Amino acid sequence: MFRVFNLTQERIVFLFALALLAAFAVFLPGFSAPDNLLALVRSVSVLGILGVAMALVVIGRGIDLSLVSLMAMSLAWSLQLVTNGMSLAGGLALGLVMSLVFGIITGFLIAYIEIPAIFATLAMGILIYGFGRLFLIDLDVVYLPDAAHPIVWIGAGNLEGIPVPVLVFVLVCALAALFLRYVKSGRFIRAIGDNPLTSRITGLPVRPVVVMQYALSAMVGFLAGLVTVTSVNSMNTRIAISTFVYDIILVVVLGGIGLSGGRGGIRNVIVGTLLIGILINGMTIMNIQYTVQNVIKSVILLAAIVADTIINPRDEQTAQQGDI
Rank of each mutant, 00 (worst) to 15 (best):
L259G: 04
F222Y: 00
M124W: 00
I189V: 14
L92D: 02
G91M: 04
I110L: 05
F131P: 03
R11E: 09
I288Q: 08
V229K: 03
L21I: 14
G85Y: 14
V253Q: 07
R3L: 07
V211N: 02
L254R: 09
G256E: 08
V271A: 14
T83M: 08
W153S: 08
Q289G: 11
L15Y: 15
T83Q: 15
V152S: 11
D194P: 00
S45L: 04
V101P: 05
V229H: 00
A111R: 01
P313K: 01
R42L: 09
P29Q: 09
L40Y: 15
V245K: 09
R133Q: 14
Y143L: 04
I270P: 10
I239Y: 05
L259A: 04
M286G: 07
G193A: 02
V229I: 04
M219A: 15
G30V: 09
D140K: 12
A224H: 09
A176G: 07
I49N: 06
Q9P: 03
V26D: 03
V292Q: 11
P208M: 09
L37P: 15
P163Y: 00
R207Y: 07
V211C: 13
A89H: 13
T228A: 04
S45H: 10
L96M: 08
I154M: 12
Q321A: 13
F31M: 08
R200T: 11
P205A: 03
L38V: 13
G90T: 12
V183Y: 15
L37V: 11
S32F: 14
S87E: 10
N195Q: 06
L167K: 06
T291H: 11
I249L: 15
I192R: 00
A120T: 04
M212Y: 14
P150L: 10
P205Q: 08
Q320M: 05
L136D: 05
L47W: 13
A72L: 00
F16E: 15
M1G: 08
V52H: 07
M86G: 01
E10Q: 15
A215D: 04
R190E: 11
L96E: 00
L65I: 12
I162N: 06
Y129N: 12
L88P: 15
I239Q: 06
N84W: 06
I113G: 09
R187K: 12
D323N: 12
L20T: 15
A123P: 15
S185N: 10
D315M: 11
M235P: 07
G225W: 00
W153I: 02
Q293H: 03
I296W: 09
Q289N: 13
